[in-house]
């Protein structure tokens, strides 16, 4: 039974696209059939982060308007044969993304994939609502920073009221993915701690992705961080998050890249 996951946040720039790519790749690395879907019409970037930007021919709006078949628009990843990307349109009007059209595309993706990951645009407008509408599971990407936490709270409220599941009176599974976390700064009292964010948002924790230069390096070369640097701290954190998403029980930790005294003092305290 396919699972539809929305990666959402409200605020922009917190790591939705990076996380969609990394989670999608990690799922495919585990043998699952995965489609990652870019919902950011006009500002697509998932193709770039996945390194598929030069192979985009058709997009979701072409599929919705009957100008291309879904199988023609899906781009197979060069490194993982069970990972596919459905790009967003860069040029079309946002209104071309209709509720009915999105419903058809998601229903068709459910037929051929184990996981469908929807990369939401920032904001709380129509695009974000369409991205979350059909989700069974939501991954709420949050930075340990006040504006990101506030916007995540808004998005959680919308997940509970505006999704198909909510409208049917069912609950949507929601998980927190805390990104760009800096353990040393949190220890010094200069960054919200994991527990602070969990206390405030009250949703279960899927994973803690440490701040790391490997994330930018991966986006520079156009590869999900779990593929580009599989043993790096963020890649290990994403891989653990995916195991939790698949229902495994994995002890929560904050992987660290740092070595030496600093790592021994701070880096592994909350392991």
């Amino acid at each position: 039974m396919a699972k539809v996951v929305v990666v959402t946040s409200g605020k922009g720039g917190v790591g939705k696209t990076t996380s969609t790519a990394a989670l999608g790749a990690a799922l495919a690395q585990g043998g699952e059939r995965v489609a990652v879907v870019d919902f950011d019409v006009g500002l697509r970037n998932l193709d770039l982060i996945m390194g598929a930007e030069r192979r985009v021919v058709f997009d979701m709006i072409n599929v919705i308007q009957g100008e291309a078949k879904l199988t023609q628009a899906l781009i197979r990843d060069k490194r993982l044969e069970s990972l596919f990307l459905l790009p967003a349109s860069q040029t079309r009007d946002k209104d071309a993304l209709t509720g009915e059209g999105v419903a058809r595309v998601i229903a068709e993706l459910r037929q051929s994939f184990d996981w469908v990951l929807c990369d939401s645009p920032a904001g709380i407008e129509r695009g974000a609502l369409l991205a979350m509408h059909h989700a069974d599971i939501a991954v709420v990407v949050t930075n340990p920073e006040v504006s990101s936490v506030r916007d995540s709270d808004r998005i959680i409220g919308m997940l509970d009221s505006k999704t198909e599941r909510a409208e049917r009176g069912e609950r949507i599974e929601r998980h927190l993915l805390l990104t760009r976390y800096d353990q040393a700064r949190a220890e010094r009292g200069d960054m919200l701690k994991v527990e602070d964010v969990l206390d405030i948002l009250s949703i279960p924790l899927l994973g803690i992705i440490p701040e790391s230069q490997e994330v930018l390096r991966a986006s520079n070369v156009g590869a999900p961080v779990t593929l580009n640097a599989p043993v790096s701290a963020p890649a290990r954190a994403y891989t653990d998050a995916v195991r939790r998403l698949r229902g495994e029980t994995v002890e929560m930790s904050i992987p660290s890249d740092r070595v030496g005294l600093v790592a021994r003092l701070f880096g592994r305290r909350v392991a």
Binding site: V146, V149, R150, G189, D190, L192, D196
Partner: peptide, 12 residues
Amino acid sequence: RPTANLARERLQ
């Protein structure tokens, strides 16, 4: 002074 506590209170 550490600032995270203030961030937490303001958010709550």
